[in-house]
Design a protein around this nucleic acid. Structure first.
Lengths: 306, 306
DNA sequence: ACATTGTCTCTTGTGCATAAGAAACAAGTA
DNA sequence: TACTTGTTTCTTATGCACAAGAGACAATGT
C-alpha cells in the first residue's frame, strides 16, 4: 500500500491554491487544475471529492464554488506528504554524515530499514542509486561497504569539479551576446550584491544562491554528465554543511566576494581572468571542505596503488 | 524464490576445478574451496552435498575423494547460472541499441519485464541504476523517457572522456620509475604488437585489449569518478559495436597503431607527445562512433515503422 | 468543434513473504 | 593453537499482490 503521499501533498497545494482564490470563487476545470498542480486528473478528482466531503467546495447551479476557507487542521501533516523513497535520502545522508562511519564498515540494509522505519525495498533502491556518488561500494552478492567521506573523496570530487567547471566557464567566451545566460548572470550578480549587504543576518541564504550560480555556469556547456555530476556536489555540500556550521558566516562572505570576481570575469569574456577567478574560487572551496573533514582518514581509507 | 543462480554458477566452476584435479584426488577443505571459488562456505557445502548425490565425490576413510569425472551433462545450462538482474542488462541494452527508439519515447517497465521474462522489480532496479548512463531520464511519479543514443550523447560522452583521459595520461609524466604501471604498460605494448601481427584473424580480440589499456591509463589518476565514468564508455562500446560491424577489422587496425604511438609517448614521458597521441586517438575514436550513429537524430518528423 | 466530466485500463510504487546465500558461532580433531 | 566441519543466525535477492496514480477513451454538454 502506498501511503497516498502524492494525494496528500497535492491536496495541501490545492488548499493553498483555494486560499489564494478566496471564498465564493469558482474552481477551474479539472484539466486546468491538473496542469496547475502538476499532477494527473485522477488525483485532482480525488482531491475534489475530498474537498466536497470536507465542505470546502460545493456544486452550486452546476458550478463548483469555494464555500469555506481551509483551516490549518485541514492540511495533512508534512511528513505524510513525503514518499518513503524521498525520506530515505534524508535519513541516509544524515546517518552517513553524522555517525562516524569508517571506510570498510558494512552497510546493513535491513538495519537501516528498521532505523528509518521504511521497507527494505526502499533502502535497497536508494543504495542502488546512491552508489554512483562514490561513497559506498558494492560487493557482488553481498552488502554495501562504506568507502568513507574522506580527504581522498573530497580531492577526487574537486578534481572533477574543477575540470568540468573550468571548461564550462571558459565556454562563456564563445557565447553569443544574445544568449539568455547573460541576463541570468547579471541577475545573479545583483542577488549576490544584495546578499552581501545583508550578510549579517541572511548568510544562510548563500548555499542556494551558490548552487544556482554554479549550475548556471555548468549548464552552458550543455553536457548532461557535467550536470549529473553537479548533483553529487549539491548533495554533499547540502548535507555536509548541515552538520558543519563553523565559521559559516565568514566562509559565505568570502565566497560571495569570490563569486563576484568570477561573475565579473565571465561578463568581461576575458579567458585569462575567467580561468584565474574560477580556479581561485574552486581552490578556496576545496580548502574549506578539506578543513572541515579534518585529517581523519587515517585508517583503511588510505589508497593503495596495487 | 531465487533461482539458485549463484549455486549453479559456482557448481559449474567446481566441476571445472574437479576436472583440473583429476580422479582419485582428494578435495581441499571447505574453507579453501570457498576462497578458491570466491563464494561462501554455505554455498560450498551445498555444492559438496550435490556432488556426493551425483556420486562425483565420496568420503573414503575420512577423506573426500573424487571418484568420477563430471560429464558435460553434469553442468547446469549457462542461462540458469546468470542472476536475473544481470540478464536484464544484456536484454535491455540490446533492446535499447537495436530497436529504433527515439528521444521522447517512454519506457514501459511492465512491458519490458514481460518481454525479458523477468519480474517488474528486476527491470525497475535496472532502470534505476542505468539512469546514470544518461540515456534515459525519469519524470517524477511517472515513467522513464528515452533521451536517445544520439550524436549529442556521443559528443557529450567524448567531451568528458577526453577531459579525464588527457588528465590521466599527462599524470604519467610524474609517476616514479618504480610504479607498477610501467610494467603493465610494456606488457600491453607487447600484446598490441602480437595482435597487430595476427590482425587478419584475431581482430575481434581488440575490444577487450582496448578496454584494458584505457582503464590502465585512467587508473593512474586514482580518481573513482574517472573509473566510474569509464564504466559508461565500456558499456556503450561493448553493446554498440555488437550491432555495428562495419569496417571492424580496419577500424581496429587503425586503433592499434594509434595505441602503439600513444603507449610509446607515455613511456617516453614527453608531455607534448603524450597529449598529441592521446588526443589524436580519442578524436579518431569519436569520429568512428559518430559515423556509426549516423546523422543527428531529428526530434521532429515522422514516426518510425518498426 | 471543443472543452468538460465520467469511466475504465494500464503502469508504477510499496510492502511483504520467503528462498538463497553470507557470516558468525560452536564443537570437534589433529 | 589452528584448522576443520556442523549448526545457527542474519542479510540480501526476488517474486508477487495490490493500492496509488497516470493516461486513454467515452459520453455529455456548450
Amino acid at each position: 500500500m502506498r501511503g497516498e503521499t502524492v494525494f496528500k501533498k497535492i491536496y495541501n497545494s490545492a488548499l493553498e491554491y483555494i486560499i489564494s482564490l478566496g471564498v465564493k470563487m469558482e474552481m477551474p476545470s479539472e484539466n486546468s487544475l491538473a496542469s496547475q498542480l502538476e499532477t494527473s486528473r485522477t488525483t485532482v478528482r480525488k482531491i475534489l471529492s475530498e474537498l466536497k466531503i470536507r465542505k470546502i467546495i460545493k456544486t452550486i447551479a452546476n458550478d463548483l464554488v469555494i464555500v469555506k476557507m481551509p483551516k490549518p487542521q485541514d492540511f495533512f501533516p508534512e511528513n505524510e506528504t513525503v514518499a518513503p523513497s524521498v525520506q530515505v535520502e534524508k535519513k541516509f545522508m544524515e546517518w552517513m554524515m553524522r555517525s562516524n562511519r569508517k571506510a570498510g564498515d558494512v552497510v546493513n540494509g535491513l538495519d537501516l530499514a528498521r532505523q528509518f522505519k521504511v521497507s527494505t525495498g526502499a533502502v535497497r533502491e536508494y543504495l542502488n542509486r546512491f552508489g554512483r556518488f562514490g561513497l559506498i561500494e558494492k560487493r557482488p552478492n553481498s552488502s554495501w561497504i562504506i568507502r568513507g567521506f574522506t580527504q581522498e573523496f573530497a580531492l577526487e570530487l574537486f578534481e572533477v569539479r574543477e575540470l568540468f567547471e573550468t571548461r564550462s566557464a571558459l565556454a562563456f567566451e564563445m557565447l553569443p551576446e544574445s544568449a539568455s545566460v547573460w541576463a541570468a548572470l547579471r541577475n545573479l550578480e545583483r542577488e549576490h550584491r544584495v546578499l552581501l549587504r545583508k550578510i549579517a543576518t541572511r548568510y544562510r541564504d548563500f548555499p542556494s544562491l551558490d548552487e544556482r550560480f554554479h549550475r548556471l555556469v555548468n549548464s552552458t556547456s550543455n553536457n548532461r554528465f557535467f550536470m549529473d555530476f553537479y548533483d553529487i556536489i549539491s548533495l554533499i555540500f547540502h548535507y555536509h554543511y548541515q552538520w558543519n556550521k563553523v565559521d559559516e558566516k565568514l566562509r559565505n562572505k568570502v565566497a560571495i566576494n569570490e563569486h563576484l570576481d568570477y561573475i565579473e570575469a565571465l561578463l568581461s569574456r576575458d579567458p585569462k581572468q575567467i580561468e584565474l577567478t574560477c580556479k581561485r574560487h574552486l581552490h578556496s572551496a576545496r580548502k574549506t571542505l578539506l578543513a572541515s573533514i579534518g585529517p581523519a582518514a587515517t585508517i583503511s581509507g588510505k589508497k593503495s596503488n596495487g
